[in-house]
């Protein structure tokens, strides 16, 4: 603080300190936004790029999300595509099986209201909005089991909507895949 004797000097000092702080604040925000841009581009962790639709009225009749097409599918390039739907108050399939160390594309939608899907112990987290397809590229490091709750209020049975993800090693997965076109771990 400056002395009271010269108010104009005091005012100039106050304004200078204030400008410095404002500059620092802008720099802090700039660094944070810059970090998000860098991680988005460099680590390719970005939201889904485009809007894709799926009609919940005909999900079970035709198209990608018919029941026989749900679960894990092997792609020609060695990656895995998991297709799932959420409905009041369960997922189909209720238990998803995926290989570790393999690129997995998760494609999911809702058959009725808004649901969500989060896989505990990972940063896999997406909304399922009826009418739209959510797509998420994911990869699991190690075999294990994860809880997969619905994270969005979807009605009075919401608290019971828990699915499961079972990560198995790649050889086991390929063995399971040999006998089936679409895979899940629903017993």
């Amino acid at each position: 603080m400056t002395t009271e004797s010269d108010p104009h000097l005091g005012e100039a000092v106050a304004a200078r300190i204030e400008r410095r702080w404002a500059t620092l604040s802008i720099a802090i925000v700039g660094v944070l936004v810059g970090m998000a841009i860098f991680i988005g581009i460099d680590h390719a962790t970005m939201p889904q790029g485009h809007v894709e639709t799926a009609d919940p009225k005909t999900l079970h009749l035709a198209g990608e999300f018919i029941e026989s097409n749900l679960g894990s599918a092997m792609e020609a390039d060695g990656s895995v595509t998991v297709r799932a739907i959420g409905q009041q108050y369960s997922f189909t399939p209720q238990c998803i099986v995926v290989p570790s160390g393999t690129p997995v594309t998760l494609r999911a939608t809702s058959a009725d209201v808004v649901h969500g899907l989060l896989i505990e112990g990972t940063n896999i987290n997406t909304m399922l909005v009826p009418g739209y397809v959510s797509e998420l590229p994911v990869q699991f490091k190690a075999p294990g089991e994860h809880a997969m709750p619905c994270q969005e209020f979807c009605g009075i049975g919401h608290q019971g909507m828990w699915g499961k993800v079972k990560v198995v090693d790649k050889a086991t997965f390929l063995g399971m895949m040999a006998s089936q076109r679409r895979l899940s771990c629903v017993d």
Partner: peptide, 26 residues
């Protein structure tokens, strides 16, 4: 985490959210 908005506008909104930290810092 919603599927009905593309990545571009999510990014725009993220940047503006950073800006709204400014008045609080000030």
């Amino acid at each position: 985490a919603d599927p009905q908005v593309g990545a571009g506008f999510k990014f725009m909104h993220s940047v503006f959210t950073g800006l709204v930290a400014l008045p609080t810092l000030l």
